[in-house]
């Protein structure tokens, strides 16, 4: 449904995107990864019609992203990293303003408010909202046109873990509504948590595009990652830990390890094949 073919964009002598091609399936949550300056923002800007392209072709739901810009704008939405609304207006005034610009239906407005739990904040001035509430308002505005695809540009920067969880849960729920999500973030655990598929771009080129499970699973590897529910005993068992709750082990040691965990009443959240998590993989391929 979103098909980028041989996309090239340069700023003077600097090539921001170099013959980039990728495909995003309808209804998926697609993670876009890359270091700063990799070309993510340029790609998002092009996808949202903010800048032109030098060459290549982009199709969204069969529409040409250059020629059919207005139509595409009506079915897509971007959630900018910055809080792109008016702090001196109330939540209601912000929602009404952006809804008017897009002729949003009443159901779309109430849907956006409900998904982002803004009902109780409706009359509050936006500047008085907490960081998490502001992020939710920022996202709600992006839902007002009932988009078929939403681009998230690092939407959880600078907010507390609770709000981040709520936002990630709501984004994961868009899948049930049939909305396609393109998600960029520096937080690999967020990508791991909500994305079905991932593309890694570096220096304007596609390094890898794959299903997240395929990327993380390396079944030929002997290594196994065991993610546990946090328990203070874990650190005293002399195991190789990747973080406070994740154990790196081998297939040979698995039975013994599981017994050890059971004896210490440490509960397992997830067992994964492969020697790396997404962060490790990302660092390897972009090194």
């Amino acid at each position: 449904m979103l098909k980028v073919t041989e996309l090239t964009k340069s700023y003077g002598d600097v090539t921001a995107l170099n013959a980039l091609s990728l495909t995003v399936q309808e209804g998926s949550v697609f993670g876009l990864l890359g270091v700063n300056g990799a070309g993510k923002t340029t790609l998002l800007s092009i996808l949202n019609g903010l800048i032109g392209i030098d060459s290549g072709k982009i199709e969204l739901f069969g529409l040409d992203i250059i020629k059919d810009r207005k139509e595409i704008n009506s079915i897509s939405s971007i959630i900018p990293q910055h809080l792109a609304f008016y702090e001196n207006l109330s939540v209601k005034e912000n929602i009404n303003f952006f809804a008017s610009l897009q002729n949003a239906s009443k159901s779309a407005i109430s849907n956006a408010i409900e998904i982002n739990s803004l009902e109780g904040l409706y009359k509050q001035k936006a500047s008085t909202l907490s960081g998490g509430q502001k992020r939710r308002l920022n996202i709600a505005i992006g839902l007002l046109n009932n988009p078929k695809i939403i681009y998230f540009d690092e939407p959880t920067v600078g907010i507390d873990p609770k709000s981040r969880n709520e936002i990630l849960d709501s984004i994961a729920s868009y899948k049930e509504l049939g909305i396609t999500v393109v998600y960029t973030s520096h937080y690999m655990n967020e990508i791991e948590r909500i994305c079905d598929e991932v593309a890694i771009i570096d220096k304007g080129e596609l390094i890898k595009q794959a299903k997240l499970d395929d990327l993380l699973s390396n079944r030929s590897s002997d290594k196994i990652l065991i993610e546990t529910i946090f328990n203070t005993k874990l650190s005293s068992l002399g195991l190789k830990l990747l973080d406070a709750a994740t154990i790196e082990s081998s297939q040979k040691e698995l039975t013994q390890l599981l017994t050890l965990l059971e004896n210490n009443q440490i509960f397992i959240k997830q067992i994964r094949y492969g020697s790396s998590n997404l962060e490790k993989y990302f660092l390897e391929v972009t090194a």
Binding site: N48, N73, I78, P80, A84, F98, Q102
Partner: peptide, 17 residues
């Protein structure tokens, strides 16, 4: 300038303004 800095103008552009 607030509109520009916070990308609100960009958001408006994507809303066909």
């Amino acid at each position: 300038i607030n509109e520009r800095k916070q990308n609100t103008l960009q958001r408006l552009t994507t809303m066909n303004v």
